[in-house]
């Protein structure tokens, strides 16, 4: 029983790690731009697919990650600067625009990479499983948990300890006042959106060896990421972390214990949190 509990907790943490990589960019983009980005799951999907191409040629997970992050961040940057920026005052137009992109990316990926599902290869060092007593857990999953934790620390440092982080927090709090103090909100928005896209792509690469790439992975993950952001509070990095762990755990234990209620176990905590605190755990009005 204890072994089962530990294994499931570790699996939950693995889900939480992936969710954090996806949701942290989503929540920051929402905080800065107030945008409902339907295409965020597509960034994850593009990350897996780009990495797949690179890894097939070079057998390097590291190189695959770097190229995927760079390519998808560039896509996100262009998307924000050329298209989304025009509709800063119109949330519905922004949302429809991202929905258009999501549909476009979906079919583009189908055209370029075909519809066959695949999983990413990863270095031999990370294969096999860790054994501690009776607990057996794959090294790769542990690796992803550690990497996500490092990314979390890096994001926290940037957010709390650097000038860019201070500007970011100011803009999340009050974009107009931030702009009045001389912060270039437009430029910051592009940067944050690109960084968020890159993070989601990195999440895709990290999840690639386990979840793989397939048509529809974008819209499978999007609701989960949204739930994380809503539970944690929009614009809050801490919220994204706590939300990821909550959703990762509940999703994992829910599916293991009461598989017939998967949607209910996913949405119940969201509704509960909203009933108690409408802005989410760490969000502001």
């Amino acid at each position: 029983m204890l072994v089962y509990l530990i294994t499931q907790t570790l699996n939950g943490l693995f889900s939480a790690a992936l969710l954090f990589l996806i949701a942290s960019g989503l929540t920051l983009a929402f905080g800065v731009m107030k945008i409902v980005n339907i295409a965020h799951g597509s960034f994850y999907m593009l990350g897996v697919y780009v990495a797949y191409t690179v890894i097939q040629r070079t057998q390097s997970l590291l190189l695959g990650s770097l190229v995927a992050i760079a390519v998808v961040a560039a896509v996100g940057f262009v998307m924000q600067r050329v298209f989304l920026r025009r509709f800063a005052a119109d949330p519905l137009a922004q949302m429809m625009m991202t929905m258009g992109f999501a549909l476009l990316f979906r079919d583009a990926a189908l055209m370029i990479w075909g519809g066959d599902p695949f999983t990413l290869q990863y270095p031999a060092v990370l294969r096999g499983s860790m054994e501690a007593g009776d607990v057996v857990f794959p090294w790769y999953r542990l690796f992803v948990i550690i990497v996500a934790a490092l990314v979390g620390v890096a994001l926290w440092t940037i957010n709390e300890r650097t000038l860019i982080g201070a500007r970011l927090r100011a803009t999340v709090d009050d974009p107009e006042m931030a702009s009045a103090t001389g912060i270039n909100v437009a430029q910051l928005s592009g940067l944050v959106f690109a960084a968020g896209a890159g993070l989601a792509a990195f999440g895709g690469v990290m999840g690639g060896p386990i979840l793989g790439g397939y048509t529809g992975v974008d819209f499978d993950l999007l609701p989960l990421a949204f739930v994380v952001v809503i539970i944690g509070g929009m614009g809050s990095l801490k919220g994204a972390l706590v939300g990821s762990i909550v959703v990762g755990m509940i999703d994992n234990f829910g599916k293991a214990l009461v598989p017939e209620l998967s949607y209910f176990t996913l949405f119940a905590p969201m509704i509960l949190v909203l009933a108690l605190k409408p802005t989410g755990l760490y969000g502001r009005a």
């Binding site: 137009a93 429809m96 258009g100 476009l104 979906r106 055209m111």
Partner: peptide, 20 residues
């Protein structure tokens, strides 16, 4: 039939861009 979503996506973007 293969590119249905591509067309819908493109149309949606065209509407938002050119005919808000």
């Amino acid at each position: 039939p293969a590119n249905w979503y591509l067309w819908i996506g493109a149309m949606l973007m065209a509407i938002v861009l050119f005919a808000p």
